[in-house]
Amino acid sequence: MVKLASARESRLYGPHPVRNRWEYINAGIHVFAAALLFAGFSAQLPGRGDNVAGLVLILVASTLFAVVNAHDLVAHMAGIDYSLSLVAYDLQLAFVELAVPFLQMLGSILTFTAILFVLIQVHPYVN
């Protein structure tokens, strides 16, 4: 899970209790998506019954990961008032706060696309 204490403290969601609640929701969705991803890949092991259900679980988990990382990216950008010119002054901001959520989101989207193509090839009724 890509979370840093500095990123959590700098987000601007509103009053302090609201900020913590959204952080817990974000972390909970991330843990739930990881559990779905584990279940989906476990369903793909040899000797298991339905491979399509496992692929669908992986699709759902990839979608949740993309949403959580998009939320993190927007929250980090809100923390700097969407001023990307500040990236030139702080490499941690560029690499950790912005690049990591973006690349995680991009990887989730690519995984979703790849698994969707596999699902279309495996199951004749999907297309």
Rank of each mutant, 00 (worst) to 15 (best):
A7M: 11
R8T: 03
L12A: 05
L12M: 02
L12P: 00
Y13P: 03
G14Y: 14
G14N: 11
H16V: 15
P17T: 11
P17D: 14
V18E: 15
N20P: 00
N20K: 11
E23Y: 11
I25K: 09
I29G: 06
H30Y: 13
H30N: 11
H30S: 09
A33G: 11
A33C: 10
L37S: 09
F38T: 13
A39P: 01
F41G: 06
S42R: 06
Q44N: 03
D50I: 04
G54M: 02
L55T: 05
V56F: 01
L57Q: 13
L57N: 02
A61H: 03
A61F: 03
F65T: 06
A66H: 06
D72C: 04
D72M: 10
L73N: 11
A78D: 06
A78F: 00
A78Y: 00
L84H: 04
S85C: 06
L86H: 02
L86K: 10
L86I: 07
Y89Q: 10
D90M: 06
Q92E: 11
Q92M: 07
E97L: 05
L98C: 02
F102A: 15
F102P: 03
L110F: 13
F112E: 07
F112Q: 08
T113W: 13
T113K: 15
T113C: 14
A114Y: 11
F117N: 12
V118D: 04
L119N: 03
V122A: 14
V122Q: 09
